[in-house]
């Protein structure tokens, strides 16, 4: 920074390209328009419908009755609890496995890009494909059950433990954990690679044991990335519909499935309630994403490269 009166040199011209506000708006316009129309527009439309305003179907007055119905529904708490359990559990398991995996792979990743390529592969497979695979593998008439019968481990399909459409949501958890581990590991590997081994070496000469180095150096360094990616995964699984629809039980329903059922009910009066549930999910997702961004910002402020 130049202090007034301390220099007679001409004003320093900013380097690089400068963009005026107008140009910036024009450049961002197309992308912003899509976001505004599709997301913000959808959100407003959803809020109107949740308020009971569906003129095409004879509902033209705004009311909080539908939102109230949802909030006061005794099923809401059970449904919310199950959705939270599925999202939180799958996120926690994925985080834990990802930390171990990233720690194990970091040296290899430093030497070869193949690890990143291998991690990218599962990211490209749609959730639906994995869900169907899990169904084919883990259902009582699935591949593993049949294999069990063939080798004599179980008597028949009825002896096979219920792993899909089960009360604990094991099938859903399996899909989410399988899908999210590569994503979180990918994020962690980038941080660990950036961190290098020098901080750990410094820790070792400062008398930190291997365990202490993990808990007092590695973990604080990866914590922001782990938290942020965990929150993103949590937000996604909280709002995802197709996996619980395929692999979940019919009662209690996960919030996204419940929202869909209401929305597609032949009783048109159920539609505002479906939308209201959708809005509730949206709020939770937005909060998660905001928290994720705050966490990353906090880490960058502390000099941790994420």
């Amino acid at each position: 920074m130049l202090h007034p009166g301390t220099s007679s040199t001409p004003a320093v011209r900013p380097t690089g390209r400068t963009t005026t506000a107008g140009t910036l708006c024009l450049l961002l316009g197309p992308a912003l328009a899509v976001v505004l129309v599709l997301f913000a527009g959808g959100l407003v439309l959803g809020m109107l419908q949740a308020g009971g305003y569906v003129p095409g179907r004879g509902l033209s007055s705004l009311t909080v009755e539908h939102v109230g119905n949802v909030l006061l529904d005794s099923e809401l708490l059970r449904s919310f609890g199950l959705t939270f359990y599925i999202s939180a559990t799958s996120t926690l398991i994925a985080c834990l496995v990802s930390v171990l995996l990233a720690m194990a792979l970091v040296r290899l990743a430093g030497r070869s890009r193949t690890i990143y390529f291998l991690l990218q592969l599962p990211l490209t497979v749609p959730h639906l494909v994995i869900a169907i695979s899990v169904l084919l593998l883990l259902s009582p008439s699935g591949l593993i059950a049949r294999l069990g019968v063939t080798v004599g481990l179980i008597d028949g399909a009825s002896s096979f433990p219920l792993l899909v459409n089960d009360p604990l949501g094991i099938g859903i958890l399996a899909v989410y954990v399988w899908k999210e581990i590569p994503f979180i590991t990918f994020m962690l590997l980038a941080v660990l690679k950036n961190m290098g081994t020098e901080l750990l070496e410094a820790g070792a000469t400062l008398k930190a044991t291997r365990r202490q180095r993990f808990f007092h150096i590695t973990l604080p360094i990866i914590a922001p990335a782990l938290g942020a990616s965990g929150l993103i995964v949590f937000a996604f699984t909280f709002g995802a519909f197709e996996v619980p629809y395929l692999l979940g039980r019919t009662h209690p329903l996960l919030l996204p499935v419940w929202a869909y059922r209401n929305y597609s009910d032949i009783d048109l009066l159920s539609r505002p309630e479906g939308i209201a549930i959708g809005l509730l999910i949206t709020v939770i997702i937005i909060v998660s994403i905001v928290l994720s961004h705050l966490l990353l910002g906090f880490a960058r402020k502390r000099g941790i490269t994420v």
């Binding site: 020098e198 410094a202 000469t205 150096i217 502390r302 941790i304």
Partner: peptide, 13 residues
């Protein structure tokens, strides 16, 4: 022994 490195290698957190 304690080793002081070329870079300070302070813990940023």
């Amino acid at each position: 022994t304690v080793l002081i490195f070329q870079k300070p290698l302070l813990f940023p957190f």
